[in-house]
Structures are given as C-alpha cells and as structure tokens.
Amino acid sequence: MAELIALRQGPLPVGPVGRRGLGWWGVGTLVATEAALFGYLLFSYFYTGATAPPGWLLEPRPVLQLAVPNTILLLASSVVAWYGERGVLTHRPVQALVGFGGAFLMAILFAAVQVLEWYAKPFRLGTSSYGSLYFVTTGFHMAHVAVGIAVLAAIFLWTTLDYFSPRRSLSVSAGVLYWHFVDIVWLFIFTSFYITPYLGFGR
C-alpha cells in the first residue's frame, strides 16, 4: 500500500516550487479573511445609509476628478506587478525589476493622490456617520496599500539579490497576489462610495 502511493508519484519537489507550496494557501486564507473584513465595512456603509434619514450623504455627488484617474492608476499597477511576476517566471530579471519598481512607484503615487483626495473632502472623520465610514473604510484600504508598498519593495529588493528563479518564486507570487487583492478591493470601495450615490443610494 505504502509503496503504491509513494511510487505512483515519482520525484517530489522539496520546498515550495512555483505556486505549489503551503505559503500560497496561506496567502489565500489571508485574502479570504481580509475580503470578509472589507465586506463587513461595506455592509456597514450600505446598512447605515439605507436606514439613515434623507440627506445622509455629505457629498451627494462625489467629485470624481481625482478618484477616477487614481482608480485607473491602481488597477494599472496590478498589471505592472503581474508583468514583473512574469519576468521572474520567465527568468528575465530586468523585466521583473521594471515591473516591481513600476508597481511600487504607482502605489506610492496612488497613496499620495488619495491623501490629496482626503484633504479635498468637505467633511472630516467626526462630521457624521458618513464621514466616519468614508474615512475609516478608505483608511483601512490605505493601510493595506502601505503594506502592499512594503511587500513590493521587499520583492524588488529580493529580486535584486537574485533570490528567485522560475522555480523558487512563491514569495513573488504571494506578494503579487496580495497586491491584486488590494487593487480589486479598491474597486468595490470606489464603486460603493463614489458611484452608488449617482445611482440613487443614500439620497
């Protein structure tokens, strides 16, 4: 019995190879629980808004001038990070560095624009429940962007140290997966806070 099972499989990789490693699953569970967290934040937004008296929105038509290009920037950075990951997987170190460095810079730019966006808002954290929800939700996201920036920086650094190969690249794939998550979750936040008011929510 034991022989059958062992022989059928042939040689086994030692340690994580590609995405075949426990760390990949670990990041998957992390993403699941974080997605739930943002789900509850958005639930709070929609629940509070739906039960609030009219006039709850402090900005009935959210200004999109900064937010839309910034959203596109963030989504584009995901593509750039993926390009970097491809670089590692195809053994093109320069492409990898360009990808991770580019994504890193775009993430920083996103964060800076988001700070401008915060200052431009006509309300603050303590103005009302809407203000609290807006700033805490985008603030939670900003914390994740900060972690993502650190992750991209680490991957960049480790790539310059020549740590990875197409086989040993789990840290890269895990970090890039996390960055995809940060970007996708922003799409939900953006839609909730910036788009749904135009569709009639919370009026």
């Binding site: 629940y47 509070t48 039960t51 303590g126 429940s129 203000g131 609290s132 805490v136």
Partner: peptide, 21 residues
Amino acid sequence: QFGTHFFDVRAGGQPLLWQHL
C-alpha cells in the same frame, strides 16, 4: 476615542449596526 459616529444616533450612526456585526 476618536469621535467617529458609527453607532451614534445623534450624528447618523446606527446602534443596530453593532448588533448585526
């Protein structure tokens, strides 16, 4: 501690949000 109003009725908060969460 920071003057937000998630659960504060006087500023549009929702006490029942706590119970749901």
